[in-house]
Design a protein around this nucleic acid. Structure first.
Lengths: 203, 203
DNA sequence: TGTTAAGTAAACCGCCCTGTGTGCTTACGG
DNA sequence: CCGTAAGCACACAGGGCGGTTTACTTAACA
């Protein structure tokens, strides 16, 4: 239905209220959480009337679901496409996150929604699996013995760091990165080592 | 003030409304979350009049804080006192949690309260530090090279497993335990190994 | 037995939240 | 240039929430 609202020029007739709503949702839900962000506040931030908002989304639940679904494409953006890095370095780069980077919203969403039946739960599950899969792909590329296993382990480390950072209000990603380094070194066959520069030295 | 309400016999005069309130809080906050549990519902479950509840606690915030503070004594109960286990086994036992065991409430609380200034945040911080410290103690006992570091790492694994279990609705502790085993083996000096039975064998 | 504190029951207040209804304005497209 | 639909402003309904109040009942103890 939404797609049909596009005119022959490919441009919506209105002024793009839907995108503004989702933009405001992304910012406010992240900053304040879902439950603490009322529709009034959200509509004000989006510079959209409430009426319009409820014409685009049947209710807050649907908006929340769409907000979480949208997060999907941004799976650790860029990290896995850095061709200048070795696979091993790419795996570690997933933990090299500047402080203040918005963390995975699904942990908070799972707590706030508190309903495993909520449609958004599936998006969370999909996202987690996607992250683990991309980590596994890179692990395979790096020559890991059991890439799926390593991918799952690294994904758990990311979640642990995110959760701990949130509760303790202190960056826990360096600790997670240190663990990741150990796991990777243990998973890669000895010949691959942890130091690619050996190629430039003797052999 | 609360302490003064005890009679000369050391026994409260009433019928223990305070404990019933905290008991209901423990159950409901865990089952439904903090924000989704109203004071009406809570008082009904505790079989306590709202009036009484607000005489024991100035407000919901104070009740929440006390609920979280109470969790403190139950730091991984029993696990660290199992004298029948080697230190290494005790470290791993922290991950051997039967499915359905109530997970650390502070992750959810941090999300729901969403206020680093909330008094309960300090309890969360204290608890996390206490867990890491006990893990570090056991790690030291096991002969780890850097017990504080290992304790922090294992604590992160526990949080990661808890978060991931919550989001994916699937037990993530086995994965965390596998990581823990690797970390422990790497942290203990080679002479100590991962097998304490060497004492019974040669030396 | 009478005083006092603890507890009960239920109505009530003000606030904020999700969600609607109504009437008006704007802008694209034929 | 006018019709149509997207969007706007704003009031308001209904409900649940945290929290308060009033009037009454129970139990301990001197």
């Amino acid at each position: 239905m939404t797609e049909l609202e596009k005119g022959p020029t490919g441009r919506r007739r209105g002024r793009g209220a839907r995108e503004r709503i989702l933009g405001a949702a992304q910012q406010l839900f992240r900053e304040q959480g879902i439950n603490r962000t009322g529709m009034n506040e959200l509509c004000a931030a989006a510079e959209v009337s409430k009426r319009t908002a409820y014409q685009h989304f049947t209710g807050k639940d649907e908006l929340v679901a769409e907000y979480l679904r949208r997060f999907d494409p941004s799976v650790l953006p860029g990290v896995f496409d850095r061709t200048d890095l070795t696979p091993r370095e790419r795996l570690l780069a997933a933990f090299d996150i500047p402080p203040g980077t918005p963390l995975c919203p699904y942990i908070g969403a799972a707590v706030e929604l508190h309903d495993p039946q909520h449609p958004a739960s599936r998006y969370a599950s999909d996202y987690k699996k996607a992250v683990a899969a991309r980590l596994a792909d890179t692990a395979r590329e790096a020559g890991a013995a059991d890439p799926e296993r390593l991918g799952e382990q690294l994904a758990l480390l990311i979640d642990g760091a995110a959760a701990r950072t949130r509760v303790l209000d202190a960056d826990a990603f360096p600790t997670a990165a240190a663990i990741a380094a150990v796991l990777i070194d243990n998973a890669l066959p000895a010949t691959t080592g942890h130091d690619r520069r050996r190629e430039e030295l003797s052999s």
